[in-house]
Design a protein around this nucleic acid. Sequence first.
DNA 1: ACTACGGTTGAATCCTGAA
DNA 2: GTTCAGGATTCAACCGTAG
Lengths: 227, 227
Amino acid sequence: MSNWTLYEGDCLEVMRELPSESVDAVVTDPPYGISYQSAWRDKSARLPKIANDERPFVWWLHDAFRVLKDGGAILCFCRWDTQEAFRLAMEWAGFTVKSQIIWDRQGHGMGDLKAAFAPTHDVVWFGVKGRFEFPGKRPQSVIRIPRLSGQVLVHPNEKPVDLMRWCVESVTPKGGTVLDPFAGSGSTLVAAVEGGYRAIGIEVDPTCCDIIRKRMAAVQQPLPLEK
Amino acid sequence: MSNWTLYEGDCLEVMRELPSESVDAVVTDPPYGISYQSAWRDKSARLPKIANDERPFVWWLHDAFRVLKDGGAILCFCRWDTQEAFRLAMEWAGFTVKSQIIWDRQGHGMGDLKAAFAPTHDVVWFGVKGRFEFPGKRPQSVIRIPRLSGQVLVHPNEKPVDLMRWCVESVTPKGGTVLDPFAGSGSTLVAAVEGGYRAIGIEVDPTCCDIIRKRMAAVQQPLPLEK
DNA sequence: ACTACGGTTGAATCCTGAA
DNA sequence: GTTCAGGATTCAACCGTAG
């Protein structure tokens, strides 16, 4: 039996079916706007980008709270200018937001070249349900891992596995279950399963799902041979 | 004639008297609104409470906007959990908040040891009035400078001069005027004057003012002798 | 009286870097 | 090495007051 599951479907619908208090941690990178189903596919289809398409997609947080065990944790990626929406929604969903974590990715995109600092970081909110305790050493609020370069990307928003491993290991009890409702390129699942955790992923885009299954097949190679 | 001025008094009263559009940059570290008092050891050894620290102290922002030249910038330090108050108030005062900057100070205090990441960063909001342009290279959003330890003067939160120099140089035109309405230990003034800028400081605490004057006297040593 | 709540006090926690 | 102080804290315990 496999220690990971991928649901191909809308995360709101899938999460509704997941049992309460069944996962130890939620680690995810939700979309910001209405093109959340697949920013990637939209891009290749050359849909025009709407300037104010920055509506944070927070509706999964309610079920995320229900599905999480008491004493469990959530790590939610966001951008500096949408962070407050996610922080508020997390609180409203029942989480206690305990920390702002900074992913110092050391490389930047463009932004406003004239009048804005080159953004080399992303924000990750850390929230808890009930009384949480770190499974290991207390981690620090800044994590410095270079972002993936454009050429190795299989997904526009792909996170380094090292980063996701740090996330998972920081907040999940050994062997626990990690849920990523926006699996995307699957880095969270790879990191979790490689680290000996159980993983549940949800992804609506079929192309992404194919990529995830391919990546996970490689991970599933006999673990003892690795490392 | 000196290239720096220190006003000993309440920043709201002093700023009211400053002429409009007279400074190129505001760089400051206001009371966070966390009612902080270090409670290590016994009561008698405690440092004095920071004035105006009960709630986020944002009332200076209105005059800060007026006093700033068009095209000028503001850098405002805050903590992750009070940052939103300052961002909102900056926008209300007229600034356009362009960037969130992270000071990775690489050392942390205590916080919630069980259920919060060790906070090793502070947030700095970057706002502009009108059309701003960086005087030099476009800076990045994460600045990594170790915090001071041990040699604290009076404030529990003295900033490294290197950090303030980076702040001042990033946003102030060469030889411009920098205003710090919460001069505190005076690091901003030291950094500005050392860098060939003009500096205006305001500080309400007489002890802090003495320390600032002492530090600035050292800075005023013939500059050519310094490195 | 007994609980409920708000405000204040001090103990305790762990990691880092200086001694 | 090894000890030790110190840290933009949080939490529990303890009041006093109010309902």
